[in-house]
Design a protein around this nucleic acid. Structure first.
Lengths: 243, 243
DNA sequence: CCAATTACTTGACGCTTAGTCAATATTTAA
DNA sequence: TTAAATATTGACTAAGCGTCAAGTAATTGG
């Protein structure tokens, strides 16, 4: 009966292979030229076998996104474990996510597509739910740190403003920025020479605006930034040439 | 020689018809089921005639987006003309854009797709450039108000922070939020019951964070909000049931 | 008013690709 | 060893994009 165990493992491996191949092809040729025959050819399986794993092309994209969302979650989690004040931990999560996006340029490419309901809808509920769960989990990691800050009295939210709404603000700021960065918009022409730095600055302005202590005039977050890179993401930031 | 004038008009009219038909179909059936035969059928022209106007399906999307980006620009402009302090004018622009997005639900659907380089790339340079110009123009309207605020001394940007980077922050916050709203993400499940309100709150937090006077504790922006709706967008806000 | 020319319109056709499924090969279990 | 179960294949169907030769309508000049 050991065979069925091995079979399962082989199945999972093949699924990984398909996802990774699709990922590579998406980066290389873009969505419109990403086709199933090519995926079959590169994976050295036939189309029929590919369809054994995924019901359609779009489902592969959703699976791809789930996988990288999980990976992103690990970066967030590592950031949240920084020794320090909640706001520093929040900064570490932002930086972690930034590193993740830079190290996984296909993530936002897939995200832009899958965000589109017409594409998401084609995937089977199983895969849809898995992606939803990943996103929810990541949201929880962020709002958890925010809740720590509230209970520890570092930030007092205005009446009617919920922690989720603040997390939403952080989320949308980053999302919008990475959407622009991974799309064809010429940011340089718009006067944005370093969008990643702008995201960092804007996040701190937002947190200052909510009155989340220590404010950026009370603590040198540039120093925190160096500490985060050194303590939490040494390997990744070296890889990105940020140290 | 009056004939050629009429011809031009007819050509432009047909182009509008195609764009509007595609817009309607995109909303009805989604990107994956949006096809050229259907557009031809609904417009009551043949496929060949459609291709006389647009080189491919994706080019129609780009044209569609240009048109609605222009429309959005008008809302921004109207907002920027509010009588009041620059920060109030900025708020009016945000509110105007919000109204625009709500009144044109197809805009972000198309934007999500066209943001994808693989799709944008298929359109001919002429259409690409037109869209770029629209986006640039809209960006200028926003950063213009910001520059007014800087010259009038209402906001003093930290050393190294440019007005464009702040505009970028506003832009990305709104973009990310509308991307989420027009996508399949279940915001309610994430604890976001009123994302549009959250966008408004987060914008003010961001502007407060940059120290843009009057801060939200110095001026009742809820009152400003009512004034904006009444003075600048009476018809639209009535249509949305916001008055 | 008619013929020649030009401009517009058409839809059948070629080609690519998603997704299916009957035939084939391989593995498992008795 | 062999029958049943399972996995794999790739030819095939259907559908849609984009083309283009042939047909239709408008315009112009005589």
């Amino acid at each position: 009966m050991a065979a069925s165990e091995r079979k399962k493992r082989e199945y999972a491996q093949r699924e990984d292979l398909i996802i990774h191949t699709a990922r590579k092809l998406l980066l290389d040729v873009g969505y419109l030229d990403l086709n199933m025959d090519r995926i079959a050819e590169v994976t050295e399986y036939s189309k029929g076998t590919i369809y054994q794993h995924f019901s359609c092309k779009e489902e592969i994209l959703v699976a791809m996104l789930s996988e990288s969302a999980e990976k992103a979650g690990k970066f967030l989690l590592r950031g949240s474990n920084l020794k320090g004040k909640p706001r520093e931990r929040m900064a570490a999560m932002a930086l972690g996510y930034d590193l993740f996006v830079c190290l996984n340029p296909d993530h936002f490419k897939a995200k832009l597509l899958v965000q589109n309901e017409s594409i998401m809808r084609k995937a089977s509920p199983t895969f849809q739910k898995k992606l939803d769960a990943c996103n929810l989990n990541n949201m929880h990691i962020v709002s958890g740190v925010l809740r720590d800050a509230v209970t520890e009295g570092h930030v007092k939210l205005k009446k009617g403003v919920t922690p989720e709404e603040v997390a939403f603000g952080l989320w949308t700021g980053a999302l919008g920025a990475y959407v622009l960065m991974s799309s064809e918009v010429n940011l340089h022409a718009l006067g944005i020479t370093d969008p990643r730095k702008a995201v960092w600055e804007n996040m701190h302005a937002l947190l200052d605006g909510f009155g989340w202590r220590p404010l950026s005039k009370e603590l040198d977050y540039e120093q925190t930034r160096s500490r985060i890179l050194k303590e939490v993401f040494p390997k990744e930031s070296a890889q990105m040439g940020m140290l």
